[in-house]
């Protein structure tokens, strides 16, 4: 027996592993082994449960509790923590509110910064160069042409650039005809895209 201690496998940082996974995906896509859509599709299966339903619960609470909403808009991160929601990539979250006259939409112009703890993993189009460039250049057109969201001219569109230090997400408007609904039922109608700002919450 050698007395040399066992060398652990080289410990890689999360960043190194993430890069390796990205490289592997790029190679497999180039080789035609898989498509981005197929990987997205599988990711989505899981995304539904790690993600946007948490944000939806926050939105529903904000719709039904004005004081909570006020806190949420002034301190997104701290207020989400009240509900036990927080963590990786959610260190500094800012919630921007949609109103009758202002519609907000989020992007990360450089990569894919995204408020993980409330929205789960970003969809691939969010990470793609096309969305990242065009939503800044022609937001109204992208929302209409790519997402079927035709906003009236009377509404101002604001595009928020998330960075690694500050991540935005959208508090969508509560739809008409939801007066009698419970907080829980309301959470059920909030969509991921409405919290990105590429959609609105449809009336039930």
């Amino acid at each position: 027996m050698s007395s040399t201690p066992i060398q652990p496998p080289s410990i890689r940082t999360q960043e190194e592993i993430a890069a390796r996974v990205k490289a592997l995906e790029a190679i497999m896509i180039e080789k035609g082994i898989m498509t981005t859509e197929a990987v997205d599709r599988l990711t989505e299966i899981y995304e539904k449960e790690v993600g946007p339903q948490l944000g939806a619960a926050v939105v529903a609470k904000a719709w039904t509790d004005p004081e909570f909403k006020e806190r949420l808009l002034s301190d997104g991160t701290g207020t989400c923590r009240e509900l036990g929601i927080g963590g990786l990539q959610g260190e500094d979250m800012v919630v921007v509110e949609n109103t009758e006259t202002v519609h907000n939409v989020i992007v990360c112009t450089l990569c894919s910064c995204y408020p993980w703890p409330v929205l789960g993993l970003p969809p691939n189009w969010y990470k793609g160069p096309e969305y990242r460039a065009r939503i800044v250049r022609e937001p109204r057109k992208v929302l209409r042409d790519d997402f079927g969201l035709d906003l009236p001219d009377s509404v101002e569109v604001r595009v928020w650039d998330s960075s690694s230090e500050m991540r935005y997400w959208v508090l969508p408007r509560r739809p008409e005809g939801t007066d009698g609904m419970s907080e829980r039922a309301l959470a059920g109608i909030v969509t991921r895209d409405s919290m990105i700002g590429t959609g609105v919450v449809p009336a039930p």
Binding site: T109, V136, V157, R158, S162, M166
Partner: peptide, 12 residues
């Protein structure tokens, strides 16, 4: 990119 961006990056 490691700094917060306090204003909208675009407004229509």
């Amino acid at each position: 990119h490691h700094e917060p961006h306090y204003e909208p990056v675009a407004i229509d």
